[in-house]
């Protein structure tokens, strides 16, 4: 069952078209990580779903309930914004209980339910405190507890980890995943980091220039991207545009076994799958070797074809070395045919 359905959503806040026909279906009880570069329209989509931006075209439905014309406060969509947005004149517990207050729940019940949620997010002793003395992470936890307190049909989180330092992110990320699972709460969480997306979402939706270009499980987005742009975003930086002849992909002067029909194609392969060593059908020159901590990033040139490879630091050849390269057949992914025209082709 789908909890959220966006159909051809177009939004242009302040005149400039930001969402250009978004189609997105989110399954009930799932957690979708919405990723994309800055300016892709992720926040605008969240605001449109929450009713904070008017639609120019298209429609949004929650379950079988269309949201057209439904004001924000009747949508039952909770948003955890990038900044915690706590009310400075209320205590921690009253901030958490804010949605209950709006729903006219009695004071005692309000406080009890809010205090229980504070326990869950690990802020048990914080009830009576003011919100000003809290750290960024604590404030974001209060905002999370407030969102749960609303018992929404849909939870939207806009880069909830962005303001935290890396050592604090881990804890909050686990908390978000755990709370979502326990409640089977349909959730969309924005991030601009592809690795974080893989850990946060059981599905990932990639947004580029105002459209959702691929929405699938994390493994598929990393290994089987639907286009070169998706491949690049998820770090599959090698895009080989060439032709397949009699079951072999032509790379520069060499031939690599490859699957699929004969004809012009584009293949991708992730840098960590490129095998560099003494054997392999391709001959390449290492033009750059950059130590990146966990691996060495090699830039290789096989004729005119540029390739990137990630190799373990202990096995890295130096810059200028000649190496043999293998592109394992089962790691090569043939991109679907609809390539944007006008891109230069490497022959």
């Amino acid at each position: 069952m789908s909890a959220l359905t966006c159909t051809r959503v177009e939004v242009s806040p302040g005149g400039a078209a930001i969402l250009r026909g978004v189609a997105l279906i989110v399954g009930s009880g799932t957690r979708t990580a919405l990723v994309g570069p800055s300016g892709a329209g992720k926040t605008t989509l969240l605001r449109a779903i929450a009713g904070l931006e008017p639609l120019d075209a298209g429609s949004i439905a929650l379950g079988d309930r269309p949201l057209d014309g439904v004001p924000s406060h009747r949508r039952q969509v909770a948003v955890v914004f990038q900044e915690p947005r706590l009310l400075p004149h209320l205590s921690v517990v009253d901030n958490v209980a804010f949605p209950l207050r709006a729903a006219r729940v009695g004071r005692l019940e309000r406080r009890q339910r809010a205090a229980a949620l504070l326990d869950e997010v690990g802020l048990g002793g914080f009830s009576g405190r003011g919100v000003r003395g809290l750290s960024g992470g604590e404030q974001q936890r209060v905002a999370l507890a407030r969102a749960l307190c609303a018992e929404p049909q849909l939870l939207l989180l806009d880069e909830p980890l962005a303001a935290l330092d890396p050592s604090r992110r881990e804890g909050l990320r686990r908390l978000i995943v755990r709370l979502q699972r326990e409640r089977a709460l349909t959730t969309i969480v924005i991030t601009h980091d592809r690795a974080e997306a893989a850990e946060l979402g059981d599905r990932i939706a990639l947004m580029l220039e105002g459209r959702i270009v691929q929405h699938d499980d994390p493994h598929t987005l990393f290994e089987r991207p639907s286009s070169a742009a998706v491949a690049r975003f998820f770090g599959a930086t090698n895009v080989l545009r060439s032709v397949v002849e009699r079951g072999e992909l032509i790379v520069g002067e060499n031939r690599v076994p490859a699957d699929g029909r004969d004809g012009p194609v584009a293949f991708t392969i992730r840098p960590e799958h490129v095998a560099v060593g003494d054997e392999g059908p391709l001959h390449a020159i290492v033009s750059e070797a950059v130590y990146a901590g966990t691996h060495v990033r090699l830039t290789l040139h096989a004729g005119e074809q540029r390739l990137e490879a990630h190799v373990p630091p202990h096995a890295a050849p130096p810059a200028g070395a000649g190496v043999r390269v293998e592109l394992p057949r089962d790691r090569l992914w043939r991109l679907p045919a609809e390539e944007p025209p006008g891109l230069p082709r490497v022959r």
Partner: peptide
């Protein structure tokens, strides 16, 4: 405005928003 938006998404109608936020 950011606090008002927050209140809006948490079910506060115009009157409640004005008085409480």
């Amino acid at each position: 405005t950011s606090l008002e938006e927050m209140a809006q998404t948490y079910g506060a109608g115009p009157g409640h928003r004005f008085a409480r936020v």
